[in-house]
């Protein structure tokens, strides 16, 4: 008999699938509630330790991937990947992708009139260390317009993708910057209720900032942890 220790479900900060202000959710959000089933080995396992074999070597410096230096404000983005008990999640892959300093993606479907930067792709990937730490060097992405409604602009953001220890801990999210007034009027960020939306906002940090070189931002990422045992849940005092 196999004992598995399940992972926690969504907490109060989780956004709904349907958020009509974000128009694309209307035809894509499931109408039926998700079905609850027991977690099994399938949900409590993941491909940890195989990142390099799957995805190739780390790409931690997005400013040195081409022959020249990208335009824009150079930044360091760093932090820790933790579980809900505050324990580090070591050896897990963090993938990022973003627009350039002008807010333009290298993607062919991004057709707005801001310049491409031949020296910037905007894709990176690192694996956390034993303390769950990760660190990227990049440029601060620009805000960009999108078609959700008239005069809609996405706040500057970096897309992040984490697998964590298990299928159950998979997370794709976005990092925002603390000085950006667009966050509070952005439908995608607003799908997350306050105060939990603040969990998506990075912190300017003087200790991460590098003299004469780059501003530093801290962003800790918290993945689902192992659920409490029924005994702990039933314990009242």
């Amino acid at each position: 008999m196999i004992e598995v220790r399940p992972y926690a479900r969504d907490d109060a900060g989780a956004p709904p699938s349907l958020f009509p202000d974000y128009r694309s959710t209307v035809l894509r959000a499931p109408a039926q509630p998700p079905v609850r089933a027991p977690q099994t080995l399938t949900e409590t396992t993941g491909p940890g330790g195989s990142w390099e074999r799957l995805m190739g070597p780390a790409l931690a410096d997005l400013t040195s991937q081409h022959s020249g230096t990208p335009i824009g404000q150079r930044i360091v983005v760093s932090g820790r990947v933790l579980d809900e008990a505050g324990r580090p999640v070591p050896d897990t892959v963090v993938e990022i992708w973003q627009a350039n300093a002008a807010g333009r993606y290298v993607h062919v479907r991004d057709q707005w009139d801001a310049p491409l930067d031949p020296n910037f792709t905007g894709a990176g990937r690192v694996v956390t260390d034993a303390e769950g730490r990760y660190r990227f060097v990049t440029v601060r992405p620009g805000a960009y317009p999108w078609g959700n409604h008239n005069n809609a602009w996405r706040p500057a953001h970096i897309h992040l993708s984490l697998l964590g220890p298990a299928f159950a801990t998979r997370l794709v999210t976005q990092l925002y910057f603390p000085d950006d007034p667009l966050i509070e009027i952005d439908p995608i960020a607003n799908a997350v209720p306050m105060p939990y939306r603040q969990r998506l906002v990075s912190r300017f940090d003087i200790a991460t900032t590098m003299p004469n070189w780059a501003l530093g931002y801290l962003f800790d990422i918290v993945l689902k942890g192992r659920a409490q045992t029924p005994f702990e849940e039933d314990h009242h005092d």
């Binding site: 926690a8 969504d10 907490d11 109060a12 900060g13 989780a14 956004p15 974000y22 694309s24 799957l54 995805m55 190739g56 809900e84 505050g86 993938e95 990022i96 992708w97 627009a99 993606y105 290298v106 993607h107 479907r109 991004d110 792709t121 905007g122 894709a123 897309h159 993708s161 997370l171 794709v172 999210t173 976005q174 603390p178 995608i188 960020a189 799908a191 997350v192 105060p195 939990y196 939306r197 603040q198 969990r199 998506l200 906002v201 990075s202 912190r203 300017f204 801290l218 962003f219 800790d220 990422i221 918290v222 993945l223 689902k224």
Partner: peptide, 29 residues
């Protein structure tokens, strides 16, 4: 600092956000 996920009072699961339409150069190897 503004309140963020490094604040013990707010600490918890980082909420999910959409992958968006432009992930193709960043995710599927």
């Amino acid at each position: 600092p503004r309140q963020d996920n490094r604040d013990p009072a707010l600490f918890g699961q980082t909420p999910s956000q959409t992958v968006g339409p432009f992930f193709h150069y960043g995710l599927p190897w």
